[in-house]
Design a protein around this nucleic acid. Sequence first.
DNA 1: CAGTATTCCTACCTGAATACTAGGATAATA
DNA 2: TATTATCCTAGTATTCAGGTAGGAATACTG
Lengths: 136, 136
Amino acid sequence: MPLFQVSTRIQYGLRALAYLASKEGPASAAEIAGAEGIPGKYLEGILGQLTASGLLRSERGKNGGYRLSLPAAELTVLSIVEALEGEIRPTECAAGPGACDHDLACLPRRFWLGLKTAVDEYLSSRTLLDVIDPAS
Amino acid sequence: MPLFQVSTRIQYGLRALAYLASKEGPASAAEIAGAEGIPGKYLEGILGQLTASGLLRSERGKNGGYRLSLPAAELTVLSIVEALEGEIRPTECAAGPGACDHDLACLPRRFWLGLKTAVDEYLSSRTLLDVIDPAS
DNA sequence: CAGTATTCCTACCTGAATACTAGGATAATA
DNA sequence: TATTATCCTAGTATTCAGGTAGGAATACTG
């Protein structure tokens, strides 16, 4: 129903990253889940995805866990969102010319592309640090 | 999966309004559906919703149909979106203080509220005319 | 008044996605 | 070798988008 909606996946991911940013050394999925009240097995999958995208580095075995691969100030929210949900794309047509067979008939395309640009600008100009810093 | 997604409901509604804007007099749901290639019965529901929200005026019976209740230049896209999907709200918390029981624990709230503001500004500063005018 | 064209109302259906849960295999450390 | 992790695969419950179907209410027209 909503035009845009932040899934629990993104909310959980962001909170987990925020937890890691405010901590020295690695943290396990179970530790983060406990601290943040997030279902553990579900969080595992999210963290795995963030690792595969290169935002986190993981170590297995005892004393292992996850840690940020970049300082929080260099991690844009856009990169987090795209890691968890792929490229933002309001409509099929908004993917670019030739992506749909209407092309000319699809006048609103320009409009939705503009919206995507506005959202991308917001998300790429804020970092993880901005999200967790109450002063911002 | 997407952070924001324009539903067919909004796309169809917009195209129907665009059709009405470029036409003298009323048009029936069937006419618009035929011209725009939209499922007729589905469109009926959408137009009914736009009517209930006051964006359209309808007349039943022969020679009836729908017409805009405002000039296209005075119809913001935000009003269209809200008529079809209700208020934009990225997360529960973003509805305002007190809307969730975390409040202080919900640091990212401010961030998502900012995103909502950015989107609202974009949508409320454009009208139906802007959407259908290739020059804009 | 009969017929026709239209909106309006209610109910249902289906496929896909979100938000999980379950159980273990694999790897690293102590 | 016991423990603590990540990693992998599969299944499930619920919700929602995107329709379909059928007819009732209403208004014009001959």
